[in-house]
Amino acid sequence: MIIIGERINGMFKDIARAINDRDPGPVQEWAKKQEYNGAHYLDINVGPSSTEPVEAMKWLVEVAQEASDLPLALDSTKYDAIEAGLKLCKQPAMINSVPAEMAKMERVFAMAAEYGAEVIGLAMNEEGIPKDADMRVGLAAELVATADAFGISPDMLYIDPLALPCNVAQDHGPEVMRTLREIKMISDPAPKTTVGLSNISQGTKNRELINRTFAVMAMANGLDSAIADACDDELMAAVASARIILDMDIYCDSFVDVFKQRNR
């Protein structure tokens, strides 16, 4: 399971302040911490309230790369900011994200092809997030087919079936699981899958428990990656166990440490 460390995000107060003051400290600290604990990518998000998203993205990318060698997932709805960031990335990055809307797909896939970037595709369109799995899978297939037209191999795509908070949209849970399974039938190679893990537990009690339970259930249904808190030790241990049970890693007694240390 590929963990995209979620912590460098202007949504968090310390990061917002760091961006504002151009203080690399907190950003670099989180970059290192997440890498140490087993993240495979660092998500980079300037936050919803940034007034200068392009400049802020450029600064975050440079500062993060000084502290960590991990590839970055540039997270923004403002594609100019993403493109500015891509130009500065030292290794192929990930674009987070694009919905199945033609104009946006054209903009993002052209950019992805140019910079060799992977792309997170959202199973939604102008009409929003469908409830049932068939519709979600149909949108995923559109993302794959459109990417293919830009010469982007399906395995460069991470489809996010879009999990909703389990306290308000409980009936979406089984549909998300089914979507994850069926996405693997779209193409060969199949697209990869991802989720914003903490969405599932918004506004609930005992969020970490719900997050990690969701993670292992989704893995059993074909989830390849998650944007998640890499510093949640219980989550990482659960993911490491799930990988063993699903025969994705060869067991050894130190399996949790081995999972976390893969990138070191």
Binding site: D134, M135, V137, G138, A141, E142, A145, E182, M185, I186
Partner: peptide
Amino acid sequence: GSPTCLAFAMALAS
């Protein structure tokens, strides 16, 4: 009965 050919293809695949 499917909204698109692609959706029908996915229904066949599964």
